[in-house]
């Protein structure tokens, strides 16, 4: 089975790249969802102060 190490290394690279990118998208999605919620709260607060 000559070259098995190279095949393993290549497929490892493929899955690491795909997995890391997927995780990065997920993490960014969560961070943005939190940011949207925080900003919405902040906006409500600012409007309440403006109305008071």
């Amino acid at each position: 089975m000559k070259g098995l190490g190279s095949v393993f290394a290549a497929y490892l690279v493929v899955w690491v790249f795909l997995f890391v990118y997927m995780m990065r998208l997920d993490a960014k999605g969560r961070a943005l969802a939190r940011e949207v919620e925080d900003l919405k709260r902040e906006l409500q607060e600012a409007r309440r102060k403006g109305g008071a």
Binding site: M1, K2, G3, A10, Y11, V14
Partner: peptide, 12 residues
Amino acid sequence: TMGTIQRIFYFH
């Protein structure tokens, strides 16, 4: 010709 190493081709 190449043997096992050619299997990289499918995902490369």
